[in-house]
Design a protein around this nucleic acid. Structure first.
Lengths: 189, 189
DNA sequence: TTCATTTCTTGATATTTATCAAGGATGTTC
DNA sequence: GAACATCCTTGATAAATATCAAGAAATGAA
């Protein structure tokens, strides 16, 4: 379980279009490398960091009646965190684990809050950042909640085909809220 | 279709705990009264306003294969808007209509953006506001997407029992992603 | 109030998806 | 490469939910 660790190295995300934002971010972002199957966040523990993924992939999941349910995937350029735990400072209901070796910037929520309170521009960055997260989630609800199993599969395949290479059938099935058997049958067409 | 209109009158929401924020808001918020079944936002049109509901209720909906699907309800103290249309300045995929006579503060997105760019405190308010919206949506996904029809019904009934008095069975059913017949049967127990 | 319209309930049946079970494929470890 | 484990596929059956249909209840308008 070795975690390589060093200072900020390169632009992790299109979000950092402002050099001032980026250089401030360098002060608080820590570059790290995590092995496969490493737990970045744990159920029952308050999340203190978020992770800007440079390479690799993570998933958020929990156990419902003994079954492993995937709630969210994160790939390159995206930010992994249990948002409500981070922001409300309450125990996480979810785990986040790496599905591949991951290179990421780890950012402490406290450092981020301090940075953001110091300067208007960071508040704005913070707001736009959350706004984007929110819009992504609205799309996910609209795509997934009001469609049947096949439509949910097709919608996800359109949006993120790479997931089907990189996640297991069982993980994808629970993410789509169907059984692995049903996903296998849908796929077999 | 008469719409009564006057200046800001009273505190519409717990969000305005800061008097400075509230007095700035008074400058851009317009108090209005809308009749029942009035369309606040329309499919195909960019949303230019959001509405802080003082009294009454709205729903967001669209048509899927001729069927009327409710995506969201808004009641007192909440804010009605087609968020992604408002923020991304793109045509709305949804309608918002009043289900009851509604008293609300109408706020122009442009005025809000101008206000927010002027002062850090408003950026912070904006961020916290979106953060809260986002957390609510996360809860909705987690409550609804990973549960069966009965569990979805019970979860909504726990969180917002008043909806069952104020919205029709058909609207509630589509919101829960089930048919009216199934909802009627679940309820009959 | 009465008539018309919409909404809700209930039953019968069809469809979708889950569950259970078994065999096959794939991958990992020694 | 053999043995083991995990993951995926496929079939049979069960359960959940949708669809279709008809009548009852509630609502609204004249």
């Amino acid at each position: 379980m070795k975690i390589k660790k060093s200072a900020y190295q390169e632009n992790p995300s299109l979000l950092f279009q402002n050099p001032e934002i980026e250089s401030a971010f360098k002060e608080i972002a820590v570059y790290k490398e995590y092995p496969k199957n490493y737990l970045l966040c744990k159920t029952g523990v308050v999340c203190n960091h978020f992770y800007i993924i440079i390479s690799g992939m993570t998933r958020m999941f929990y156990y419902k009646e003994g079954k492993d349910i995937t709630v969210h995937f994160c790939i390159e350029q995206e930010t992994a965190s249990v948002f409500e735990s981070l922001v409300k400072r309450e125990k996480s209901k979810f785990n986040i684990e790496t599905l591949e070796p991951v290179k990421a910037y780890e950012v402490s929520f406290k450092d981020f809050e301090d940075l953001v309170s110091k300067n208007c521009k960071f508040e704005r960055f913070g707001r736009l950042f959350v706004q984007q997260l929110h819009i992504n989630l609205i799309e996910r609800i609209n795509d997934l909640h009001f469609h049947n199993a096949t439509e949910r599969y097709e919608s996800l395949f359109d949006k993120k085909p790479e997931l089907f290479q990189r996640a297991s059938l069982g993980q994808l099935a629970s993410y789509l809220n169907i059984t692995p058997e049903t996903l296998s049958r849908i796929r077999g067409k």
